[in-house]
């Protein structure tokens, strides 16, 4: 029979591909602050929080339970990196498509100006669905604390000309369904979009 005549290299390659496919999920690293107890390492999970989405509906840690999501930090009037980050995240939105267990989450770091209405207007102008992309309002201290302590994202007010009033990280942060950070991406670089999309699919499998 023909199948017996296939060279051994073919079978080895096939096995390697199967193993690689099965283990691709586990190839994503874990990021964040770790705790080591004996032989066990645990990574800090998303803390409890209570914010609002662009429709003024509660957006909490419960909203994200069991979901793979990408978080970033931005502000509506940002003249520097936010427009290009939004454009790249919109590409992720388009490429991943509707997935019930996936969300994009953009936290404003300027809650004084970026009211719930301003966030809704921004989302509508961008043409995205609330089911797939939440724009999130929270008290500044709570947002900054979560950004620093869990997402490892830096952000601060800044009075220098051209910054728009804030300096902040341009990272996209990929979080798995257990609330653990599994990927960090430079949101200002177009080349990061395909890598992020591929990693999202790995976590959704």
């Amino acid at each position: 029979m023909a199948i017996n005549r296939l060279p051994i290299n073919y079978w080895l390659l096939t096995c390697a591909w199967v193993v690689a496919s099965c283990s691709s999920h586990s190839t994503l690293p874990f990021y964040g602050i770790e705790t080591i107890e004996g032989a066990d390492t645990t990574f800090r999970e998303l803390p409890d929080f209570s914010f609002l989405d662009q429709d003024g509906q509660p957006f909490t840690h419960e909203t994200l339970k069991g979901k793979v999501y990408v978080a970033d930090f931005f502000f509506v009037s940002c003249p520097t990196i936010c427009p290009v980050m939004t454009k790249h995240l919109k590409e992720v939105y388009d490429k991943v498509g509707p997935e019930p267990n996936f969300l994009l989450v953009s936290h404003t770091i300027d809650p004084r100006h970026d009211t719930v209405e301003a966030l809704r207007d921004y989302a509508e102008r961008l043409g995205v669905s609330k089911d797939r992309w939440r724009f999130v309002w929270g008290h500044k201290d709570a947002v900054y604390h979560m950004g620093h302590s869990f997402y490892m994202a830096s952000m601060q007010e800044d009075g220098s000309e051209g910054s728009g009033g804030y300096l902040h990280s341009g990272s996209f942060i990929l979080v798995d369904a257990h609330g653990r950070i599994r990927g960090l991406y430079d949101g200002t670089q177009a080349r990061e979009v395909p890598r992020l999309v591929a990693d999202i699919h790995k976590l959704l499998r």
């Binding site: 427009p83 939004t86 454009k87 919109k90 921004y122 509508e124 102008r125 961008l126 043409g127």
Partner: peptide
């Protein structure tokens, strides 16, 4: 943007 066409209904 590169082409001067702005972006979405934002810019």
């Amino acid at each position: 943007q590169d082409d001067g066409n702005g972006y979405a209904r934002l810019y």
